[in-house]
Nucleic acid binder design. Structure first.
Lengths: 228, 228
DNA sequence: GCTGCTTTGTGAACGTGTGCACTAGTGCCT
DNA sequence: AGGCACTAGTGCACACGTTCACAAAGCAGC
């Protein structure tokens, strides 16, 4: 018989929130909560209750009117939708500050993303061990990706090396990339890239701070275009 | 005379892209490029040219038709709008893996966000020096915030300690928070919070990987709600 | 069983963001 | 001086996301 067809496409905004619901539900489950209403879930997630219901409705009708959602069941459904029914090993490129922190950050493995390997181009760094993972040379990337069946790569190199890192990841067979370098990566259309730029986040906060402080306080000294 | 009024509110989506333009423009400026078209800027930023023009138009009419934008001038205007005409010292709470990496990540200081201090609640970590910054005890937070005029705090603690860290930051006088802990922080309305959750990013990638792999391949074994 | 309370699921209105396509300046070349 | 090529700025239509408000559905108590 036909397995459930890949359901209606889920809006990006919803996909981005599902992990949050999942975390809250898991926590609640651990605390012995069996059932939860959209309102409570919304409160814990810092969002609107209607949004929670709409988001969850994209997965199917897994709630019970008058009661709420069964925590364990909902956890299962979200995990399934997100593809978290099995682990996704990741490989980290770049064993600098950030790469080391990521490798050492237990949160990845715990949440289903074990670090299959960490590589660097710098021979000096190869061989050192970070929180149980030995740094290998970047030339071993294809082998790691193949043998460990890695489909997600993390770029944690300096900006200048990021594109090369991405190219190598793609060549090695990775199909998704999480990019921490402050550059726009050029990759084949089929590759999914997400970018996390810490400085950008701070700059957005700066904008709000500046705005709060009263906007453009001093137009004084504004250089004009050095026209001709 | 009246300084320029705080101009029309800039859409969030635009604010989030301005730092990207800024980085590209700065790079181009360093490479000796004087003038740049919206098309070229769009290409380098991986976005649509019309979007670039619309985004920049929120700052004012700083381009020249038929020519493009003067790089240096545009850099200045974006910096001003984002409040980057002066540095914003930040204080990091949590000297674990991530906190250490952030403190050691030169990119912050370079881009106008020098690390004014890093604190931890663990006496054992206090006193050690990370990339030039000495770890201090969290009780010194108010003093650091006051003397260094810090308005941005970074939460880099484990999930369990994050709310306490946020509370302390707010009490110390910080008005913006960048949160790396996987929890929804409760803070007064006036406080601006941005969240970066590495695991969420991976889960979003996982969703796409799973979808690529053919969606719900096995409805087999799906547990049903353990009703009564 | 019926009534009333609760909570989901969703249609519809609204708001925000995106991208096209056109207008209006600007510089350059003849 | 006039025309051409180019590119910023923007009105408009569309797509996407959010929120409200209500009907449908289930449970509990009588």
């Amino acid at each position: 018989m036909a397995p459930e067809r890949t359901r209606r496409r889920i809006p990006d905004a919803t996909v981005a929130r599902l992990p949050v619901y999942l975390r809250i539900l898991t926590e609640q489950g651990d605390e012995g909560v069996d059932s939860i209403s959209s309102e409570r879930l919304a409160e814990l997630g810092g969002v609107n209750a209607a949004k929670v219901r709409k988001d969850l409705s994209y997965l199917g009708s897994y709630g019970t009117r008058g009661v709420g959602y069964e925590v364990a069941y909902l956890v299962y459904q979200i995990r399934r939708e997100l593809g978290l029914t099995h682990d996704w090993p990741v490989v980290i490129v770049g064993a600098g500050n950030l790469g080391q922190a990521l490798a050492g950050y237990g949160g990845f493995g715990e949440r289903g993303f074990p670090v299959a390997g960490i590589v660097d181009i710098d021979e000096a760094k190869v061989g050192s061990v970070l929180s149980g993972v030995r740094v290998r040379h970047i030339d071993e990337l294809p082998q790691i990706v193949q043998t460990k069946r890695v489909s997600i790569g993390v770029v944690a190199t300096p900006a200048g090396a990021a594109q090369d890192a991405a190219d190598r990841l793609v060549r090695a067979g990775v199909t998704s990339i999480l990019n921490f370098a402050p550059v726009v990566l050029a990759v084949p259309r089929a590759i999914e890239v997400r970018k996390v730029d810490l400085a950008v986040e701070l700059q957005i906060l700066s904008y709000h701070e500046q705005r709060r402080a009263g906007g453009a306080i001093h137009a004084v000294g504004t250089p004009r275009p050095a026209s001709a």
